Computed example of a mutant assay.
Amino acid sequence: MHILNQDVEFLEENRTCSYFDEKLSDIRYRYIYSCSTELYQKMLERGWRRFGRMHFVPECKTCDKCVSMRIDVENYKFSKSEKRVISKNKDTKLYIRPPSLTMEHLNLYDKYHRFMNDKKNWPYTAIEPEDYSKSYVEATENYAKEFLYVRDDKLIGVALVDILPQSISAIYCYYDHDYSDLSIGKFSILAQIKIAKELKIPYIYLGYWIQNHFSMGYKEAYTPFEILKNRASLNETPIWKKNEI
């Protein structure tokens, strides 16, 4: 299928669920060669996520456990433990720039996923440069950024982040578990919250949350947050409500 410079939408049905072995999922995809800030904002508000030029949203017929969530930035208060994480990283350098691809990126990405394969049995195959580029580097509109975390002149973490006037979307983060004492994954979200507060951006979209899930449940620590209560099309109004755990 030749889709360059086109907008193509399709539904993949009965695919293996990424979060529950016994379930199947239905995912709607939309390939957008160049997604405007206005369109992307509308899609974020309706539960869509982005990897490269591909956007997607779950439309599972028999399950609604994947819930879109967003942090309420204005009302967010850093806890004592979160302040300790920020303090531990006072010597961690943060660079924010357009997404890029280097051997450091690929090596760290592979190291992270080998670790997660051992720890959580994630599937692992060494990523090819072309695949990394398609997922994380292509479609570098002005809102697409990468947060590079550097310690001892070494890249120890990468977060792919979209920064829009009314939203920050946390796309993906990977890091070096040799520096686990720094909690880089948590520090990355806290850094995004600090930036959102400074820029008066009201929401940070963390993607999908599954309550009590071993891999996705951690997101509920970032309270207060809101959850999407309906599956709204782009022509319908999304309903977001404060979550009460």
Rank of each mutant, 00 (worst) to 15 (best):
M1G: 15
H2E: 09
I3S: 08
I3M: 12
L4V: 06
Q6C: 06
E9M: 09
N14W: 04
R15F: 03
Y19Q: 03
K23A: 12
K23H: 14
D26F: 11
R28S: 04
R28Y: 03
C35M: 09
L39Y: 03
Y40W: 14
Y40N: 03
Q41G: 03
L44M: 09
R46D: 06
W48S: 05
W48K: 08
R53N: 14
M54I: 13
F56N: 05
V57W: 02
K61L: 14
K61T: 12
T62G: 00
T62N: 14
C63M: 11
C63W: 10
V67T: 15
M69E: 02
M69F: 04
R70Y: 03
R70Q: 12
I71W: 03
D72L: 10
V73N: 05
S79Q: 08
K80V: 02
E82A: 12
E82C: 01
K83L: 12
K83N: 14
S87D: 07
S87Q: 14
N89E: 04
P99Q: 05
S100Q: 09
T102G: 03
M103P: 00
L106N: 08
N107D: 14
N107Y: 07
Y109K: 02
Y109M: 05
D110Q: 10
R114V: 04
N117E: 08
K119L: 13
P123M: 06
A126F: 01
I127V: 15
E128C: 02
D131V: 12
Y132N: 04
S135H: 11
S135K: 11
Y136W: 08
Y136D: 01
N142M: 01
Y143Q: 03
K145F: 07
K145L: 01
K145I: 00
L148Y: 01
Y149W: 05
R151A: 04
D153P: 00
D153E: 13
L155M: 11
I156S: 04
V158Y: 07
I163Y: 09
L164M: 12
S167D: 03
I168V: 15
I168M: 14
I171G: 04
Y172F: 11
Y175T: 05
D176V: 07
D176R: 08
D176M: 07
Y179F: 15
G185P: 09
G185M: 05
S188H: 05
I189C: 03
A191K: 14
A191M: 02
I193S: 05
K194H: 06
K194Y: 00
A196L: 01
K197P: 06
L199S: 04
Y203F: 15
Y205T: 05
G207K: 02
G207R: 06
I210G: 12
N212L: 01
M216C: 07
G217Q: 10
Y222W: 13
Y222R: 02
T223A: 11
E226I: 00
L228A: 10
R231E: 11
A232H: 10
S233K: 12
P238D: 12
P238V: 09
